Amino acid sequence: MKLITEKAELFFDLMWSLQFFINTELKILTKIKNRKEYAALPQKDKQVVREKIYEQPELIDKYIASNPDRLNDNHLSIIKQWKNFIKGDFYIERYLKNHAIFVGDNNVYGVLGLHDAFDHLFPSNYLPIYVKTILLPFQGRIVYDGLMQVYQVSFGGGIKRSLSETYMQAKQNNKIITTLEKTRVKIESKAFVEVEQENIWTNEIEQLKSLSKKLKGGDGQPAINSPVFSLVKASIALADKALFDPSDIDALTKELQKVERAVRKVENTLDRML
């Protein structure tokens, strides 16, 4: 749920290089003479410089053009991607194995910590928490920029359920955002479409449809068999529709209603057996 140490150190090396350049350009902390002195400052002293990055993102281009620290192309590319920052308020909703879930503006992000994992900063029993921070792309992942303001508020069950549902909806629809690098987003989306178009369950569904046609109740069988067989067929029909036309919500809803009617018939039959 956090960057490995080497990557976290690289992140801060690049961030302090950029911020020291901006500090020099704008003459903010005039007593600071080099990057090492700047890096040693407390975070609160760097706050004004930090804000200038997001108020004037063109300063990133200026840094890249002059490249005062003689960075290689890969490192310059990382800094250039920071122009795709997202600044705002976010709920940290839960922790997963690979990232923390941030919810903001109806979007769901998978975010990594830097030197410390989020669950070390905020124990999971404190979640959700409401924070103000800036999300940045970093080598294909999303991190925050090292500063985070925590709002001292508590949440009732309604907000917790709403946040959970926002996460579940994003998860179900493959919409958890795990990178802010636009070229990578396109590649990931294309890969998902290709998998979707393969219809890898076609043979299995066809076999189930064929087998289910043989399921018939009556003829002295237990009364429960007929409604259960109907439920099986309705469930297979729903799976078939979900496989071949997952975007047709109306059709899926109709098939689901058939399943629900079949379930009620099973329940009624069981009630009569009491």
Rank of each mutant, 00 (worst) to 15 (best):
D248I: 05
Q43M: 08
A262T: 09
V108T: 10
L256Q: 13
D13M: 08
Q172K: 13
K182I: 07
F12I: 06
G110E: 05
G220S: 01
G220Y: 05
L41V: 05
I159W: 02
I22A: 03
L18C: 12
I236W: 05
D69H: 14
Q152V: 09
E194F: 11
I4L: 10
G220W: 01
V195P: 00
A117T: 12
K46T: 03
E37Y: 02
G88T: 09
Y54F: 15
V153Q: 11
K160W: 06
K175P: 01
L59G: 02
V150F: 14
K171L: 13
Q47F: 15
V232P: 02
N174G: 01
K209S: 12
S212G: 03
Q19C: 09
L252V: 09
E206V: 14
G218E: 11
I134N: 10
N125S: 06
Y130H: 11
E93P: 03
I101G: 11
A8N: 07
H120G: 03
I205H: 09
M273L: 12
M148Y: 04
L26E: 14
T24V: 07
Y63W: 08
P222H: 03
L71F: 05
F229A: 02
R141Y: 08
I134F: 05
I64S: 00
G113P: 01
L215E: 03
Y130K: 14
Q197S: 04
V193C: 00
Q197W: 00
S164L: 11
Q56K: 14
K171T: 04
V259I: 11
F12V: 01
H120Y: 05
A170F: 09
N23V: 11
K175C: 02
K46Y: 05
A170N: 03
E260W: 03
E55M: 06
K33W: 04
E6D: 13
F11G: 07
V108F: 06
P227M: 02
Q81C: 01
L112D: 05
I101M: 01
E188Y: 12
I224H: 06
I187F: 00
K132Q: 12
R264Y: 03
L71A: 06
Y95W: 10
N84K: 14
S210R: 15
F244Y: 14
Q47Y: 13
K36D: 11
K258F: 00
N106M: 00
I134A: 00
S164A: 13
L211Y: 15
R272L: 15
K46C: 04
V232T: 09
S210Y: 09
E204W: 08
I142P: 08
F192R: 15
Q172N: 14
K171P: 01
V153D: 05
V193D: 10
L10F: 01
Q169W: 01
G110W: 08
G110Y: 10
D250L: 07
A191V: 01
Q221M: 15
N74K: 14
S212V: 07
E51H: 09
N225G: 00
K44N: 14
S154M: 12
N107Y: 11
G220P: 05
K182V: 03
N34F: 00
G217H: 04
L76G: 02
Y167K: 01
R94V: 02
R264Q: 14
M1L: 12
Y54N: 08
Q172Y: 10
K132F: 12
Q152M: 06
Q81D: 13
A39H: 08
Q172C: 00
K233D: 10
N106Q: 07
N125C: 02
A8H: 10
S235N: 12
I60K: 06
M15I: 06
L243S: 09
